[in-house]
């Protein structure tokens, strides 16, 4: 658990972070979003003390981080940045092994962990273990960057616009993989982005910042349907609002459980905008739904997507 209590940071006369308080629960995926200069990156970098706080307290599991040695604190957290920052003179294996090496893990354990992480991030260990960073594409480099951050099994993962520099296809697949890793490991993630689609897609909760202040901290659904200020509304954008609204709920949330129909079924965890796309593609108004084990879980009707009680306006 991460707690900020009235934390302030000034650079000269400019207040980058202004008396911000919030809590990130154990295992939560928290996205920080806001325009540039809003203080979101500063907040992130205060969690691992790359930037010291001027006022207020930051606690991790109840412990004030000011009382810890910065290096020890950082070794307990994963840290991923937009420009990756792999060590160019080290192999992929040695890059990933950085923090376990600092913590003095035995060699065999480090080796096994590197193999496990490369597989987790869809990089063939036989091919990439001994490669040097300059031999990898941008997407592969960031995969190694994520693997390196996860290496010592940190309870907290800090990510500063990690996918912003990647092409849309690579970004989408890394987002999917990150979601899966988060679900599997239960790591607490704090993720900075300026891309609302990314925030809606990844976050359990989204904190919107502006001018060093926390404007709203809520679930993706609430950010969409109950924006606290015009800024939040602007960040979400009016364009394709309906599709974004559909994207934060799944087929399982809206399916009529007692009914059944024929055809290629959709998984219950499919986002609703995909279901809409599928209906248009197949020219049907009804789709069968199956649960995680492949058992029938009802039918989704086109009219369910526009049910007024579940809707809302921007």
């Amino acid at each position: 658990m991460i707690e900020f209590e009235r934390v302030t940071k000034r650079f000269g006369s400019w207040t980058a972070v202004d008396a911000v308080s919030f809590t990130v629960a154990e295992g939560e995926f928290r996205v920080l979003i806001g325009p540039s200069g809003s203080g979101k990156s500063t907040v992130l970098r205060m969690i691992n003390r790359l930037i010291p706080a001027d006022e207020g307290a930051i606690r991790i599991d109840g412990e004030d981080i000011a009382s810890l040695k910065p290096e020890e604190l950082r070794r307990r957290m994963g840290y991923v940045i937009q420009s990756v920052g792999l060590f160019p003179h080290w192999t992929v294996e040695r890059n990933i092994a950085t923090v376990p090496g600092l913590l003095g893990w035995p060699r065999a354990r480090i080796r096994d962990r590197v193999t496990e992480l490369l597989e987790l991030l869809n990089l063939d260990p036989r091919r990439y273990r001994s490669a040097y960073p300059h031999q990898l594409s941008g997407g592969q480099q960031q995969r190694v960057g994520v693997a390196r951050a996860l290496a010592a099994e940190p309870r907290i993962l800090l990510m500063d616009e990690p996918f912003s520099a990647l092409d849309p296809i690579t970004r989408a697949s890394l987002q999917t993989e990150l979601s899966a890793i988060h679900r599997r490991t239960g790591t607490t993630v704090v993720f900075v982005t300026h891309d609302m689609d990314e925030a809606l897609r990844l976050g359990d909760s989204i904190a919107v910042m502006d001018h060093g202040r926390l404007i709203q901290c809520a679930s993706p659904l609430d950010i969409l349907t109950r924006p606290a200020s015009p800024l939040v509304r602007d960040l979400v954008g009016r364009e394709e609002w309906g599709l974004k609204r559909l994207a934060v709920e799944t087929v399982g949330d809206r399916a009529r459980r007692q009914e059944s129909t024929t055809g290629e079924p959709l998984a219950a965890e499919t986002p609703l905008h995909r279901a809409l796309s599928e209906m248009v593609a197949r020219g049907t108004e009804r789709l069968p739904v199956v649960d995680g084990d492949g058992r029938p879980a009802g039918v989704l009707h086109l009219s369910d997507l526009v049910r007024p009680d579940a809707g809302g306006t921007a």
Binding site: L50, E72, Y79, I81, L86, F87, P88, T98
Partner: peptide, 26 residues
């Protein structure tokens, strides 16, 4: 490169380790 130093610091290398393991070889 600045990001390499930033990543090294963020992972918990001490200033001395950053100089010896990152700055010098590069």
């Amino acid at each position: 490169p600045a990001p390499v130093r930033e990543a090294a610091r963020g992972m918990g290398l001490t200033p001395r380790q950053i100089f010896l393991r990152v700055d010098l070889p590069l």
